[in-house]
Design a protein around this nucleic acid. Structure first.
Length: 772
RNA sequence: GGGCCUGUAGUCUAGCUGGUUAGGAUACCGCCUCGACAUGGCGGUGAUCAUGAGUUCGAAUCUCAUUAGGCCCA
């Protein structure tokens, strides 16, 4: 009997042919019907080379979701998109061409960004395809396409008309390196070394002084008041007194406020516009008039007097010197201070009052909480990230950005009276470069307009992804069928941005939640558990790994190593060692391929035993697949295939399958059971390793793709776990005994079979060559 | 400062509705060509289950404190 499979190992090169076949046969094509499973696939962002190996793992798992759903009989809509709006590509382009955005002509700069994006995007598409992602590549979308941007703009125009958008002059987080306002969500915190300066402030008309500690002495010129804790007895006599600010000699009042901590510094705190978020809250609460000490260029303004024009850090150094010279310094401590930093440019942000557009969100928080409660989270613990974020939102969403590569805010201002005008929705507008489509100002009838130059926060684009993929406003019939989406898979670090903003926007625009399930994954860390980054040099390029080991190896590694929802470590050696399992599966199949596939057989005791173990496996996998937790089936299938099926069952029935000293009926029982078990394993494994299972399936069982099969269901056979343990123990005992007697495995030996294994006697005897 | 999550052999992890010789994978060491597989088989080394205390006849598993890490917020 020649095996149908002759090659001794799985060759990842075969994956390329299989991909081609899938493409030709269009087996993943989507046509909407009445019961669709829509995946709101995260469009990856091309920010540089190489693409993150953690992202490759992430997309592999998203594909497992699609394949699981497909095999569960669902009509799967799996769109593929690329997110192309935003700051990172601008920074990449500036660096690549050694230019500065603001010193380059806008159209020219946009073209350079586009080219960079095209290159980076090509690499990502290549990786996604090689991974076997069963998405709709033929219709992939870009968030910077006219179609997408016009959706973003239309939804904005809609909200504008509903009065959800307003312009406000408020203290904003300002990143002066990027030259833009940033949302709270884009701020990270880092512990930075800084100096805590203890300064002497004179109390007016007395010879007394109080000590105030601050890390921002350059903001003395913007100091409006000094606060102490109401319980702080050190200052109780001076409440309401005028205090003279050193250097500037201005007078401010000493007041009490609970936010001043007695134990910090001297207990007295100067309140300036704006040192930190607490200052912002105090200015608002105490209705103080702000002093703008730092300008949009990130330098001190004229109110800083002789420090004007300096960067805050330089001004700080200089003012400390001057304070020391003038005798205002009591002492200076070096401390580590938790400082808010721009996530993108990594520099400390400044808080500067600016006029920006806001989208109302505060009054929606209750509604968002309700929707959040309705959505199933996988794993459930990550719902907490959203809930915590909802608890802590305290301002509306600033949506305008002073950048170039983004969706333009579609507003024109009347040149005469400055009245803002929004155009009709449905088209893509570029106000910085286009004539206003409105002919006369609605207020003063003037015909001259100035186009808005700012762009939207990129989350304004990304947050309508469920609407874009479902052709909202473009194809009502299609929209009705695929919206709301079934599932949103995404990484856990963007729950408070992408996930939250999507809930907010989609609910505002459709009155419905965007999806019923959210599937949240952790980050890929390097082998030491550190976050991967290009600057640290610990980033792993996924492409060579996939090319060398094959997509299935990579995918099985991702399923078997990543505990769903938790951060995971990427280690090339571990990915490589996963390959062994595919090799095992290959060889099991190679062995079985030497026996004919038969439809039925009468199972013996051994066959019934392995079928009960198989049924247990099916149950276990079903549990994992229902939660889209691929760790469960991956581990269970590997354990069963290797350590139960191959190690014990196949060895037990080998002689029977060959028909040596067994009847035809007994032989058929073995062959039938062997194939039934393997066919089941292949189906169970198909969502995780689509290539090798497809290849083996087609050679052994059917011309029709395994990915068009229904997943197997369990039959509820009674478990025989006790037998499994006994068999493994008995086999181990025999192997050990032969070893200690220096016998070869094929040599005969006399060992008593335990009573419980009596029904398996004939198989065990032939397996170990046992003497009576 | 507050919140959420986590801490099991070098590494990844199972077990955590209390009672297991703490299971598996990987790495490492030794032996072995037995008609699927040396990308294999068999055997072995390796864990005071982060630390301390408590509840209990009994705790990796429950409670509290401490500590370390991750993420988030202020």
């Amino acid at each position: 009997m020649e095996p149908k499979i002759s090659e001794k190992a799985w060759n990842p090169e075969l994956e390329k042919n299989i991909l081609k076949q899938w493409e030709e046969e269009k087996i993943y094509d989507f046509k909407p019907n009445d019961d669709n499973f829509t995946i709101d696939t995260p469009p990856p962002y091309p920010s540089g080379r190489p693409w993150h190996i953690g992202a490759a793992a992430h997309y592999s798992q998203i594909d497992m979701i699609a394949r699981t759903a497909r095999m569960a009989g669902k009509n799967v809509y799996f769109p593929i998109g690329i997110d192309r709006n935003g700051l990172p590509v601008e920074l990449y382009t500036e660096k690549k061409h050694k230019i500065r955005m603001r010193e380059t002509e806008r159209g020219e700069f946009l073209n350079l960004c586009k080219d960079a994006l095209d290159d980076l995007e090509a690499e990502m598409i290549l990786i996604m395809k090689s991974l076997g992602i069963s998405g709709d590549f033929a219709n992939y979308y870009r968030t910077d396409s006219e179609e997408y941007r016009s959706l973003t703009q239309s939804t904005f125009i809609d909200l504008w008309k509903k009065g959800e958008v307003y312009l406000a002059n408020r203290p904003n987080n300002y990143d002066w390196v990027s030259g833009t306002t940033i949302a709270d969500a884009e701020i990270i915190y880092d512990d930075l070394q800084t100096k805590l300066v203890y300064m002497k402030f004179k109390i007016k008309d007395t010879d007394k002084e109080i000590i105030i500690a601050s890390t921002r002495p350059e903001l003395l010129c913007a100091c409006r008041t000094i606060i102490v804790n109401p319980d702080d007895e050190r200052y109780s006599n001076y409440i309401g007194e005028k205090i003279i600010v050193p250097i500037t000699n201005s007078e401010v009042e000493l007041r009490t406020h609970h936010s001043a901590k007695e134990e910090f510094g001297s207990g007295a705190v100067m309140v300036c516009s704006y040192g930190d978020q607490n200052d912002v809250a105090l200015f608002r609460e105490l209705q103080l008039e702000e002093i703008v000490a730092i300008g949009l260029d990130g330098r001190m303004t004229e109110v800083a007097g002789e420090y004007a024009g300096l960067k805050p850090k330089q001004a700080r150094t200089k003012i400390i010197e001057d304070l020391e010279t003038a005798g205002f310094v009591e002492k200076i401590e070096d401390i580590v201070h938790r400082t808010p930093i721009s996530e993108r440019s990594k520099i400390p942000i400044e808080i500067i009052p600016m006029e920006e557009y806001y989208l109302k969100q505060k009054e929606k928080i209750g509604k968002m909480k309700d929707i959040g409660k309705e959505i199933t989270f996988h794993p459930n613990m990550h719902k907490q990230i959203l809930m915590n974020w909802l608890e802590s939102i305290n301002i509306d969403w600033p949506i305008s950005r002073r950048r170039f590569y983004g969706t333009e805010i579609p507003i024109w201002y009347c040149k005469e009276c400055s009245e803002p005008h929004v155009p009709e929705p449905g088209k893509y507008y570029r106000p910085w470069n286009e004539k206003c489509p409105i002919t006369n100002c609605t207020k003063c009838k003037s015909t001259e307009f100035i186009g808005e130059e700012r762009t939207f926060d990129t989350w304004m684009d990304s947050s309508v992804s469920p609407l874009f993929i479902s052709k909202f406003n473009r194809d009502d019939e299609f929209f009705k069928k695929v919206y709301p989406a079934s599932i949103r898979p995404q990484a856990k670090d963007i729950v408070r941005t992408w996930l939250y903003y999507t809930l907010l926007r989609c609910e505002e625009l459709t009155g419905e939640k965007p999806w019923s399930e959210a599937w949240i994954m952790g980050y890929g860390l390097d082998e030491k558990g550190m976050k991967m980054s290009k600057s640290k040099g610990n980033a792993i390029d996924p492409l060579p790994v996939i090319e060398k080991l094959g997509a299935d190896t990579f995918r099985f590694w991702s399923a078997s190593e990543i505990n769903h929802g938790y951060d995971f470590r990427c280690n090339e050696q571990k990915i490589e060692s996963t390959k062994k399992f595919l090799s095992k599966l290959w060889n099991v199949s190679r062995f079985l391929s030497s026996f004919p596939v038969i439809d039925s057989g009468i199972p013996t005791a051994s066959d019934k035993w392995i079928l009960s173990e198989l049924d247990k496996l099916v149950k276990e996998c079903k549990k994992g697949y229902e939660e889209y937790n691929f760790f469960i089936p991956a581990i269970a299938i590997r354990e069963f295939t290797w350590n139960v099926f191959a190690a014990h069952y196949i060895e037990m029935v080998k002689a029977r399958a060959y028909g040596i000293d067994f009847s035809d009926e007994e032989r058929n029982g073995a062959i039938f059971t062997l194939h039934k078990t393997l066919a089941t394993i292949l189906k169970l494994l198909a969502p995780i390793t689509p290539f090798i299972t497809e290849h083996l399936w087609k050679i052994l069982y059917s011309n029709e793709s395994i990915h068009q099969q229904k997943q197997v269901n369990f039959e509820d056979i009674e478990e025989q776990t006790e037998i499994t343990k006994e068999i493994a123990e008995f086999n181990s005992k025999v192997w050990n005994e032969k070893k200690s007697q220096n016998l070869s495995l094929k040599d005969s030996i006399k060992i008593e079979i335990p009573e419980i294994l009596e029904p398996f006697k004939k198989d065990l005897k032939s397996m170990h060559n046992l003497l009576d």
